[in-house]
Design a protein around this nucleic acid. Structure first.
Length: 300
DNA sequence: AGTAGCACCTGATTGC
DNA sequence: TGCAATCAGGTGCTAC
């Protein structure tokens, strides 16, 4: 989504804002009026993301002052950005429409479940030195993004520190993978896929994960997310599409997620599904043991 | 401080 | 056919 937006809207001027559902700008005290007043007339500059948070730096039309504001967004469960070269009738789930100039485009924010939002906020320095996540490194992050950890695919991610952080606490390792303050960008599907690839049980307490497993998990996460990105994401239906309304293909490569009852491609055991921590969780009961397999071979 | 539980929403699908 | 229950890719707040 970031790549698609960057290639199409970078540099465009925001000429008009139509908030079609007030709650999509709920983080602003002044609501739709404040949003429109803040972003109107500014230019969408670099598009960046960290984890699932996406933003555009907002540049003044003239002068080359460093941007101090960002138009940020979170897609929640069902958010989409769609770009049109004309002005079509708005989709029923269209929550906001930005009219852009230079180039002339219609940028729609769609969100069926309305957990997503648009926001305008200052860019602030971050304790970790700041990097824009996968994509262009940035010195600053939007204030609401400053609390999350570096993206799993961030080239500047400290893998040693991240692996150590994954092993802290009593929570199941899947919960820790989903905790965006540890490493960001890992969602429910990618957590299940990474755990399957690294052969780690989702409920293993974080402190019982070995250093080698933590390294494997991080590597598996990067592998899975990198491959998914290469295939345009894991979209399976019209709710999950890129800026042109196209679906990704990674759902065809899933090994665990959504495959309950099907044989594990490694060992043939039927995959299990259970709700863990409120999230649907899929794993192979043979490859992914809650506790390490008993040491084999003779003891001395 | 760390963690579990729940609220926030709409719409598609499933089951009676 | 109709209606209610269930489920969905995420985050953040509150209470313990």
């Amino acid at each position: 989504m970031r790549r698609g937006l960057d290639s199409l809207v970078r540099g465009a001027r925001i000429d008009a804002v139509e908030i079609r559902r007030e709650s999509c700008v709920r983080l602003l005290p002044g609501g739709a009026a404040e949003f429109a007043a803040e972003v109107g007339g500014l230019r969408l500059s670099r598009l960046a993301r960290r984890g699932k948070f996406l933003w555009a730096e907002l540049a003044e039309l003239e002068g080359d002052d460093a941007p101090v504001l960002a138009l940020s967004a979170h897609l929640g469960m069902s958010g989409q950005f769609r770009i049109h070269t004309d002005v079509p009738d708005a989709h029923p789930h269209c929550r906001a429409r930005l009219t852009l100039a230079d180039p002339t485009l219609t940028l729609d924010f769609l969100d069926q479940r309305t957990f997503g939002y648009l926001h305008v906020e200052p860019l602030v320095p971050t304790p970790d030195g700041g990097a824009g996540g996968a994509g262009t490194p940035l010195p600053l992050l939007p204030a609401s993004v400053a609390h999350i950890g570096r993206d799993a695919l961030d080239p500047v991610l400290d893998a040693v520190a991240a692996a150590r952080a994954l092993r802290r606490g009593s929570r199941g390792i899947k919960q820790v993978l989903l905790d965006q303050t540890v490493v960001s960008g890992i969602g429910n599907i990618y957590a299940d896929e990474a755990l399957w690839l690294a052969r780690v049980h989702p409920e293993r307490p974080a402190h019982a994960v070995t250093a080698a497993q933590a390294r494997d998990l991080l590597a598996a996460t990067r592998e899975v997310m990198g491959r998914a990105l290469g295939q345009g994401g894991t979209s399976f239906d019209a709710l999950y599409v890129n800026v042109n309304g196209e679906s990704g293909y990674f759902s065809r490569s899933l090994e665990a997620y959504g495959r309950a009852g099907e044989p594990c491609s490694r060992c043939g055991a039927p995959l299990r599904r259970e709700t863990i921590g409120g999230r649907s969780t899929h794993w192979c009961p043979r490859c992914q043991r809650r506790w390490s397999a008993r040491r084999s071979g003779p003891r001395s």
